[in-house]
């Protein structure tokens, strides 16, 4: 790892001011992904701005929403009593990610910024457009069991690896950021982006912007929710496919529904078409099966991940079934 300077920021404003002057500076919070990437020489910042001293750790319930500070730890949010009660889907998704040690370290903001687990991205002597633009995509024609079936491009078929973000996408969260030009708000589903020709850009953050919090508006998805993560071992593995399912049921009729998938695209994949299909329908396995099939429309596979179409549809059906039975 290259050595670097480390500066401890004392406010979000000075953090942003500091980083603005640097080309090769990065914010660091939990470090669970960044330190790993630095050890692998995937990124090599000259300066780290340690933002752990910033006052961005609180989980605050205010009228109509909850605001979660960007520095709140993953375990802190997952185990927060009020989050469990009002946003159980988020709690379930967080608890499915990584290990408890990592959840104790990783922050909400950092989780949103974590890089893909694509092996070609991590191996610096392999082609990867995301890491080294114009070097090619190793995964296309290579090993792509983990890879995208939606929204990929000829430049990149990597997937976004987070569990938390799948739940936040489903729950219509908003991202609050602060940058050199001031503060702004981004719809969570617009925060991550598809690779297109610029896979090096994971999200729509502008240069030097800092995530300060995530807000989730109040909703009725407090009971019939499930986060189903399918992976190669029972725990401590990234998702092959995951589904965040939330149902608002009235007498077994679907009053409202949210569905999002992980492990299938460069961003959390919100299944709006399947949601529309389900609204107003009576709960049944058949309806859930149809929603699963509908959601897989337009999927494209690359050999190693052909199974994800069947698995994706089945996971949606299963997640909805479990959610409905709660």
């Amino acid at each position: 790892m290259k050595n670097f300077q480390i500066i401890r920021a004392l406010s979000s404003r000075t953090a942003v001011t500091n980083i603005s002057k640097e080309n090769e500076a990065m914010f660091i919070a939990g470090g669970t992904n960044l330190v790993d990437l630095m050890k692998k020489n995937v990124v090599a910042p000259d300066k780290l701005i340690d933002i752990n001293g910033l006052d961005l750790k609180e989980i605050e319930f205010v009228k109509g929403k909850v605001s979660i500070g960007a520095l709140a730890k993953n375990s802190q949010v997952a185990e927060d009593v009020a989050i469990k009660e009002k946003h159980p889907l988020l709690s379930l998704a967080l608890a499915a990610g990584a290990s408890q040690q990592i959840r104790h370290m990783a922050t909400v903001g950092g989780n949103m910024l974590q890089k893909t687990r694509c092996s070609y991205y991590y191996n610096t002597d392999m082609p990867c457009n995301k890491r080294t633009p114009k070097s090619g995509c190793g995964a296309i024609g290579g090993s792509n069991r983990m890879h995208a079936i939606f929204g990929a491009s000829d430049s990149c078929i990597a997937v976004h690896p987070s569990d938390m973000c799948i739940a936040l996408a489903a729950l219509d969260a908003q991202v609050l950021v602060e940058g050199p030009k001031g503060k702004r708000q981004i719809k969570f589903t617009d925060f991550h982006r598809l690779p297109g020709n610029t896979p090096e850009k994971d999200n729509t953050l502008e240069a030097k912007e800092l995530i300060t919090s995530v807000e989730i508006p109040d909703h009725n998805f407090t009971k019939n929710v499930h986060y189903l993560k399918v992976r190669d071992r029972t725990s401590y593995a990234f998702a092959l496919v995951s589904v965040a399912a939330a149902l608002d049921l009235k007498n077994n009729v679907i009053n409202d529904v949210r569905l999002a998938m992980g492990g299938v695209a460069h961003k959390p994949w919100r299944l709006t078409e399947a949601e529309e299909f389900l609204k107003g329908k009576t709960v049944s396995e058949e309806v859930f099966r149809q929603a699963g099939d509908l959601a897989m429309k337009g999927a494209r596979t690359y050999g190693g991940n052909d199974f994800k179409i069947t698995l994706g549809a089945n996971t949606i059906t299963e997640a909805l079934t479990i959610a409905a039975s709660k």
Partner: peptide, 15 residues
């Protein structure tokens, strides 16, 4: 008091 992974922890951030 919290269990963490020391391999991903920069000592310089543990003032």
């Amino acid at each position: 008091g919290t269990r963490i992974l020391s391999c991903l922890t920069l000592a310089s951030m543990q003032q």
